[in-house]
Structures are given as C-alpha cells and as structure tokens.
Design a protein around this nucleic acid. Structure first.
Lengths: 215, 215
DNA sequence: CCACGTATATTCGTAGGCGAGTATTCGGGA
DNA sequence: TCCCGAATACTCGCCTACGAATATACGTGG
C-alpha cells in the first residue's frame, strides 16, 4: 500500500495541513480543501474524510476538543491537531519531497499492453491523447495565470509542477506519434503483420515464454 | 477510485494481457509478470492477484477450465480468457491510452504542503530528491540499454516513457532548487520570516481563511 | 407564504486490497 | 543421509475506501 504510515492516505496529509491552521470540524475541513481545490476534480470523498479523521484521532494526531451546535443543525465535532500530528505532517512532507516513489500511472499500464492493439489504432489513440493533453495544458495554464494574480507562487508550486509534467508528457507522446506515423519505429512491420495475420513473428514469440513455469 | 470498470485494478489488466497468451494457473501468471517485471519493485501482491482473478471470473472475463495436479502439490486451477475478457482488455487499453486521467502522485501532495517546512530545509530535501532521481535515471537507462539488446523496443515503450518523465521531473526539480538557492523565488522572504517569527505575513494570511464556514 | 433546491453534517454498509499465514515439495550442502 | 531454506500454491481475514443514504435548515422565486 505504498507505506507504513499509521494513517496512509494522502487525504490525511491534506487534513493535517488544513486543521493545523486552527481547530475545526470535519465539514469545514472539506469546504476549505474544496476552496483551495486540494481535491481538484475529485469531489471530496465523504466516506474517506470521516474515516481518515477518525483514524487520525485514534493514532493521536488529532484530538476532539468538544462540539458546538448551530441552531438545530447536527452537532459539529471540533478537532484540533496535536503535537504528534504536527510532527507527522512535517515528517511526512519531508519524505514525500525527498524520496521519489515509483508510482505507475494508468498510462504506463496502458503502454505496457499497447501491443494488444494494431499499430494504426495505437497511433490514433495517441493522437487523441495528445489533443486532450493540449487542451488540459491550455486551461491549466490559464487558471494558473489567473490565480497568480492574488496567490503567492509558493502556494501554486504543485500546479507549476503538474503543468511541467503535462508538457513533458505531451512532448513525449508527440514524438512517439511521429515515429509511428513516419514509419521510423523499428518494430512497426512485425507489429502490423502480427495483427494482420494473427501470427506472432518469430522475434517476438520467444519472449512470450519468459518466466513460464515448467510443467 | 478512478473508474467504473467491473474489475477496477490495473493488476487485472496485467492479468488479462498475460493469460491472453495461453491458459494458465494463478501462480504462473505471477511468475510471468515478475519475469517481465510488470510488477517492478512491487512484489506481486498475492492477496490482490487471487481476488482479482476471482473477480475477473465472476464477471465472465476469465473462465475456469479445470485443474491439474503436479505430484502432491496443491491443485492448480487453470484459467482461460474469454471473448468478453479479450474485449475488456482491448477496450481498457484504448481508454488508458487515449484519455489522460489526472492522477496525483505523492510528490504533488508533498509540494502542496511544502510551506509547512522552512525554505532552507525544503531546498535540501529537493536536492536529496534530485540526487535520487538521477540515480534512478542512471540505472533505468542502463537496464533499458541492456534489455534493448534482445527485446524489441515495442515492449520497452513504458520504460522509455517513464525515463522521459523522470528526466522531466529532474529538470523541474533542478530549476526549483536553483530559484530557491539563488534567492530568485519571489516568496522566499515572506516564507522565511514566517518560519522564523511564527507569524504568518499579511499577504499570506488572508488566504488561509478561504472557504471557511461562517460561524 | 409555501415548495423546492442547495447547503450543512454525518452515519453506515459493503466490496475490495493486501499482509500474513499455511502446507507441501524440492534442491543442495554438511 | 538428513536438515534447512527456497519455491510452489493458495486461503483467510482485517482494515480501508467510498458510495449512498439520512436528516435538518436556509434561501428564494412564484
């Protein structure tokens, strides 16, 4: 599951960072995170938020400091961060920043089985991806520029990073399309004939036996 | 959760791709995936593999075609991919390739709370990260070069992509370190004084109230 | 002034992920 | 020859994630 943290869910990191400012109740944490779109598209997962806060409390990173009631609304339980919680926040952040963890995005998984599709279709799909990436890059750039007007760059650093990565991906996808479209990719012929004839060419075939368990 | 696929776990994609070659039992799937390190460092998650195969069967993507016994070893249940399974494989691959899904790696989460650390420490941690990235890039490049000797590039495409992304990240991290070390980052002063005095500077403070729930 | 959509706040059930345990066989060194 | 550790093959069960349901209050257009 990526790690051995007592509460291992990045939502917990966001919660710690949020509640660090001042004690608050769970619904408010969610609103604040939403306002800063710490959640981005991911509409806050209510179930997870409540479980995560509960676990943070169980492990002593948050403490319940009573509850208040607003009219006849449901009671609001107020949580405060503890010293242990502050330490966890800092320590976790240190780890995330200092240590690249190999994460395998869906695209990598897709690429690893790309040969399941015929080459012309693969090329088309990559073109579609490129289009979408460019669209995203455009709108993210616009949002970032707008935010930069009243938010210090320090708080937009994740967006700068994500934008840089999107651009790098677009560039890689672009060059891959180019290789496939121009025919300069070395395995194109074998790949195409495999899909046309249904026969796995010899040079690819031997590979498919790797790791097989002897009978 | 990323999606509404019946079996939503990328391990299932790897399983489909593997068992597509020929019917096999679960342990063999694992060995093959390991040999191709579809799993990379992540030592195959046994629990998940068995659950995933079970779910694939439940949804008709795999079918049990009996079992064989080897000596007195536990019985091996053999699975075969179905037509629906083949369709799922292709369809899923199409989606993964054509549609960028916003995934938020741990590093992004870390960056989003970077201000929790004092600037000099942040800089140090980024340097550590850069060192590790470079190390990884070196060894990945070596592994890739070696593999290229007997594996067609088509089957190394995910590695090429990952390498490109690692390089892009290293480059971004490098330039961020440069901004922080040279003092050219605009928020450095406010950031530093905040950590030294414990006082949130005015220009940052107002932001911390965004999304607050009125009392 | 009433009806209805939206905001406030939280609980609960369930499916899935995965670590850890189990049982057997085989190879090889002392 | 005998023991030990690695490989083979799988099961079990806890814990987590999160969708969906619940219940009340508020604001506003008709």
């Amino acid at each position: 599951m990526a790690g051995k943290r007592k509460v291992d869910n990045l939502l917990a990191l966001a919660v710690l960072a949020t509640v660090q400012q001042r004690p608050m109740h769970r619904y408010e944490m969610a609103s604040i995170m939403r306002a800063r779109d710490k959640d981005r598209d991911m509409n806050v997962k209510w179930g997870s938020l409540y479980t995560v806060v509960q676990n943070l409390e169980k492990h002593g990173f948050l403490e319940n400091i009573g509850s208040s009631r607003q009219g006849a609304r449901p009671e609001r339980t107020i949580y405060r961060i503890t010293d242990a919680g502050r330490r966890e926040l800092v320590d976790w952040t240190r780890e995330l920043i200092s240590t690249p963890r190999p994460e395998r995005p869906g695209f990598v998984a897709g690429l690893s089985v790309l040969a399941a599709l015929p080459p012309h279709e693969a090329t088309d799909l990559l073109r579609t991806r490129l289009g979408r990436l460019e669209e995203t890059i455009g709108s993210r750039r616009a949002v970032l520029a707008e935010a930069a007007a009243d938010v210090p760059r320090l708080f937009l650093i994740e967006d700068e990073y994500e934008l840089a990565m999107l651009e790098a991906e677009a560039s890689w996808v672009g060059s891959m399309i180019e290789e496939l479209a121009s025919g300069s990719h070395p395995d194109l012929a074998a790949w195409r004939s495999w899909h046309e004839t249904g026969e796995m060419p010899a040079e690819m075939n031997e590979l498919s036996e790797r790791g097989a368990v002897p009978d």
